[in-house]
Design a protein around this nucleic acid. Structure first.
Lengths: 336, 336
DNA sequence: TTGGTAAACTAAATCGTTTTACTAACCAAA
DNA sequence: TTTGGTTAGTAAAACGATTTAGTTTACCAA
């Protein structure tokens, strides 16, 4: 049983100075506060020798901040979010911040609970891919002066920093691409969530059809229930492709739907080729290594992460309120 | 600018009782401490009305625990770890614990730093996929009485709870499977990390060859540098396959190596078929949807997560020291 | 009447920091 | 001999909880 970690008090006692003095030294205020170099040196040596680390909890209690940033996404095991998480973690770490993350499952109640929890932990800043029904509490965070950056999804009624991707355009371009290849019976497989980045993809699909004088056909749009197990989704997709034999192109609105889609096609022995094209949302190894390779809409992970971090630290640094920025990045259509 | 969150003091004042009383009520000790039901009811109502949430930081400072569990893995964006993270998060959340995670990048210095940091945050428990060079600090954690569960990787010199997979056997079986199919020139693509779960895979490969009287051929074993960019790995693999034309089977020791491998094969127009078989470590959509489908060693994610959480809460609950358990789970060889 | 006990509550110490508002010593200038 | 300005430090309050060790009142039995 090792001895407990030393506290600032222990250091002060050993150095025969006051706690205050030690605190000034730890926080680099020694010179400004007229502590003699001799004392500084002595204390620093003792700190090193004792392996003293200031207790962050006590610090947080006193200062009101925690050096923790919360990251809230739908599902951390989704490669898109896991990738973002990794990049953000990396950048935050360099500035002395830790990330505490949570999967919201796109559930407003759960998200509310989580934010309450983070709040009671004095979390310094929030990076959120939000769901509808969380507007109130997010507004409260902003009012409290906490830095908040929304990403991926956007809450129209909230004026907050936002980093997103132009899904309408990405989806529009994908469909326009299909049409240019002379494909006419284009299906959209999407999810039944009422969140902006999903509805935008739908809207882009519709607009592209309209602009090219193709009638919108409701039966070619499949809205998969969000929490449905994968097997059932695959069955639904098989059904869709069987019933609508004329389908010659499909846009999948999320990466996991595309994966279900490819599974469905495989089970039907239906090939992806020039008379049956597929575009997936969010690129990934699955699509690159598929035979034939699958075209995809690629979101710029690194840029998204960069901008999020930039906005967070911008807010963390400034005391005055800053007018929220909305950064919309272009997605990249990768035709394979 | 909303008013600040109410503190226990505010609640006490409004209810016209002492802080102590409020504290007892919050912590469910009211009955035990003989607080009258009338007071309990009144205080609870005020708490609700004020939206009071106890400050976790203050709580942590006083009680010495934080309701936070640290999860340290090599890279959170690796699907294996992201999957584990998700499952653990879910289970921990149900018990009122949050997860704070970090990617160690298999770097001992960084891991040490991170543990120091977590320690100063009074993190309650640690789930670690460790690297060599972290034995000392992990031992310290254990001595301090902090629950620690190692997983994925194991530190032979440390007696700690461990949840792992029998990589030796998985690898052995994979190779034995190849041999049973009459494949003889079997390559191993692995990573140059000196961690147990990687060296075990190598050992399993060697043993299987030996048991079947196939001479171990050094030139068929490629050890890819850990932090090497993917492109270079692909080049190395192309080289390997070109130089050793007789190779008729490959075991990839990690999921990302398998992905590089498939990319390499694709770039060479070399097909996976009966005279060139591939097995990947860690199953994933990429392998399921590849044409032809790729065989894989599947680690039982859910079981791993279950056992980790079980061990953590077992330790969190008991005050007395418990003798560490080592749980080795079997991997599943999925032949496709 | 006394004393013991149970019921209902509370004052104050404590956790480990940061920070504000001092003090004490010294020296130079008026 | 004051006055005032540095220099080098420190005492104590505060952050918001938990918890120990009480206190007070009421009630009841002997």
């Amino acid at each position: 049983m090792s001895t407990k970690a030393p506290s600032i008090k222990d250091i002060a006692k050993i150095a025969n100075v006051s706690i205050t003095t030690v605190s000034f030294i730890i926080n680099g205020k020694a010179v400004e506060k007229n502590i003699s170099t001799a004392v500084i040196k002595r204390v620093e040596e003792i700190i090193l020798a004792q392996g003293y680390q200031p207790n962050q909890i006590a610090r947080s209690l006193r200062t009101g901040n925690s050096k923790i940033i919360a990251l809230m996404v739908e599902d951390i095991s989704n490669p898109f979010f896991a990738g973002i998480a990794r990049l953000i973690e990396e950048k935050a770490y360099k500035k002395g911040y830790k990330i505490i993350y949570s999967s919201t499952e796109s559930d407003a109640v759960r998200t509310n609970e989580l934010i309450q929890l983070f709040r009671s932990r004095q979390v310094d800043a929030y990076i959120i891919s939000p769901v509808q029904g969380t507007e109130k509490i997010i507004k409260e965070l902003i009012d409290e002066g906490k830095p908040v950056v929304l990403f991926d999804r956007h809450l129209p009624t909230i004026s907050a920093n936002y980093v997103g991707v132009d899904h309408f355009k990405a989806s529009y371009d994908a469909i326009a691409g299909f049409i240019a290849m002379n494909l006419q019976n284009i299906a959209l497989v999407t999810v039944d969530l009422d969140v902006e980045q999903i509805t935008d993809r739908h809207a882009g699909y519709q607009q592209a059809l309209a602009d090219h004088h193709i009638t919108y056909n409701e039966s070619l749009v499949l809205k998969v229930p969000f929490k449905q197990p994968r097997n059932e989704t695959i069955n639904q997709l098989v059904e869709l492709f069987k019933v609508n034999e004329t389908i010659d192109a499909v846009l999948f609105a999320t990466n996991y739907l595309a994966i279900s889609g490819l599974s469905a096609l495989r089970s039907m022995n239906k090939l992806v080729n020039d008379s049956f094209k597929v575009i997936a949302y969010d690129d990934g190894d699955v699509f690159k290594l598929h035979s034939p390779q699958i075209s995809a809409v690629e979101q710029p992970l690194e840029e998204i992460a960069d901008n999020i971090i930039k906005l967070i630290f911008q807010q963390l640094a400034s005391t005055t309120e800053i007018t929220p920025e909305k950064i919309i990045l272009p997605a990249k259509l990768i035709i394979r």
